[in-house]
């Protein structure tokens, strides 16, 4: 191999390592933001989510439990606590590009804030039984000036 070829090989490897390192650190930083949240000072509203074959139950702070429908207010931070009553599910907000496992006996949490009002689908992203494909919900984001 020529000297230029050797330098090119090393430069390629260093470029690849540097790129992956940068992506890894950026991902880790974002992961910490999602997991630990950046909204603590805003006192996020806590909503419990329970996965059951084949329904998503959303429990609001006032005790109301609504199946398959999550209503949030645009621009307001929420903390989602996810668990399961039977088998493993996965709460998947497609339009947020994020999903969270729902495992019996464990509770996982994520911080969520949506700025754009609208109606978005919620899916179960973990095969949970014959009716897995029916386990759908909707996320309704209302404008910030209306009551959520």
């Amino acid at each position: 191999m020529t000297e230029i070829g050797r330098y090119a090989e090393i430069a390629t490897i260093v470029f690849a390592v540097a790129s992956l390192t940068f992506l890894g650190l950026l991902s880790y930083h974002y992961y910490l933001n999602i997991y630990y949240g950046t909204y603590e000072h805003q006192d996020p509203t806590v909503i419990k989510v329970i996965g059951k074959q084949y329904v998503w139950l959303f429990q609001y702070p006032n005790g109301t439990t609504v199946p398959d429908k999550l209503v949030l207010q645009a621009g307001k931070p929420y903390e989602i606590l996810v668990t399961s009553d039977d088998v493993i599910h996965a709460l998947y907000f497609v339009n947020l590009g994020y999903k969270l496992e729902a495992i019996p006996g464990y509770t996982y949490h994520m911080y969520i804030e949506v700025n754009q009002p609208g109606t978005y689908p919620i899916y179960c992203a973990e095969f949970c039984g014959p009716g897995h494909y029916t386990m759908k919900g909707i996320l309704i984001v209302t404008p910030s000036n209306s009551s959520g």
Binding site: L23, L26, S27, Y30, N33, I34, T38, N95, L96, G97, Y98, M110, Y111, I112, E113, V114, N115, Q116, G118, Y120, V141
Partner: peptide, 12 residues
């Protein structure tokens, strides 16, 4: 959609 999490995913 526009949200902090969505922005992270989009940027990455």
């Amino acid at each position: 959609v526009s949200s902090p999490t969505g922005d992270y995913v989009q940027q990455l």
